[in-house]
């Protein structure tokens, strides 16, 4: 296998809050190869968004970020702001949740697209930039791309806006695309369009994708590998089939059991659907993470007293060697 496009090691993010320090991300390791999609899954407050904002230098200055993030042989976390600016939108494209807030409402679509193209020196000259911008809009499936250059964000639907955001993200021909809840604000039929679009563009350009979402259905459709986050830590990671077919961590099992679609697959015709397997309680706020295993207060298994005092290591529970299936547990494969 060739070297990964992005390799993150022991990433930690600490934020100072009025309630004390919050360990929002607490030791994260993963790698994304060319053409590969890694999905980071978690509920609100799990640290999934912060973990990628940290890589891109988009956190407030009060945040303390440690670890390494090797991108094209250089450590993103050691870069100056000027160097990072060269990487953002050029080597790494970004798509965020709400296309209305990630686009500037007072600038035309064409202006916002050409701005990046010119700033990163992808093309020279306004005419060339406009031609390239129209190509990009055509590539993301916007009808009448030349006309769309003159439009403003409020004139477009949510799905069309997100296509524009994706066009902007792809303008610098990035090797890595980071999508943070990119389809969450969209209706399912539009979500299907956007997922298809990203999958197609990825296949055409060999882009590596980090897709952050809470939606396990989307993950099943797009990811090669999955990383499940809870309380700032990775509790399980592995190939998408391994994690969905043989979830090892009680939290992953709980998340999958809470999905109506999985439970209802066992529902007979005319029969009432069985109850969902709800996880008791709520996720802890990052300022009040429990000692030991972050999940133990909600855990239905809770093996022994070690859970409350010691942080369980990520151990291999399956998969094959360069790409193992791992879970944070004391019990290895013999998880109760």
């Amino acid at each position: 296998m060739s070297a990964p496009v992005l390799e993150v090691a022991d990433l930690r993010v600490r934020l100072e809050t009025p309630r004390g320090p919050a360990h929002v991300v607490d030791g994260l390791d993963y790698a994304v190869g060319a053409g590969e999609t890694v999905a980071i899954v978690g509920e609100s407050g799990s640290g999934k968004s912060v973990s990628v904002l940290a890589l891109l230098g988009l956190l407030p200055a009060s945040a303390t970020v440690t670890g390494t993030a090797s991108f094209g042989g250089r450590d993103l976390l050691a870069m100056s702001e000027a160097e990072l600016r060269g990487v953002r939108g050029n080597g790494i494209g970004m798509v965020f949740q709400d296309p209305m807030t990630s686009l500037n409402p007072v600038l035309s679509v064409g202006r916002q697209l050409t701005e990046g193209l010119l700033a990163h020196g992808v093309v020279t000259g306004r005419a060339a930039a406009r031609a390239r911008a129209a190509d990009l809009l055509a590539d993301v499936g916007l009808p009448d791309p030349r006309g769309a250059l003159e439009r403003y964000p409020h004139e477009l639907s949510g799905g069309m806006r997100q296509r524009v955001v994706i066009a902007i993200a792809l303008a610098g021909e990035p090797r890595l695309l980071v999508a943070d809840e990119a389809t969450t604000a969209l209706d399912v039929t539009v979500q299907a369009q956007i997922v298809d679009l990203v999958t197609r563009l990825q296949a055409e350009h060999g882009t590596a994708v980090v897709w952050i979402t809470h939606d396990l259905g989307v993950v099943a459709g797009i990811a090669d590998r999955v990383l499940v986050m809870y309380g700032g830590r990775c509790v399980e990671d592995g190939g998408v089939d391994d994690v969905f077919d043989a979830p090892a961590h009680p939290y992953t099992r709980g998340l999958l059991g809470a999905l109506p679609a999985r439970v209802d697959a066992q529902r007979g015709p005319g029969r009432r659907a069985p109850d969902l397997v709800a996880i008791a309680g709520t996720p802890p706020p990052p300022t009040e993470l429990p000692r030991g295993c972050v999940f133990w207060p909600r855990c239905p298994v809770r093996g022994d007293v070690r859970c409350e005092t010691e942080q369980p290591p990520l151990v291999r529970v399956g998969g094959t060697d360069p790409r193992p299936h791992r879970a944070a547990t004391f019990y290895g494969r013999e998880i109760p």
Binding site: V188, L216, G217, A220, D245
Partner: peptide
């Protein structure tokens, strides 16, 4: 219905 993602990689 066909647009709703299913949380099963094989079915997807």
């Amino acid at each position: 219905l066909s647009a709703v993602p299913v949380p099963s990689p094989a079915l997807e």
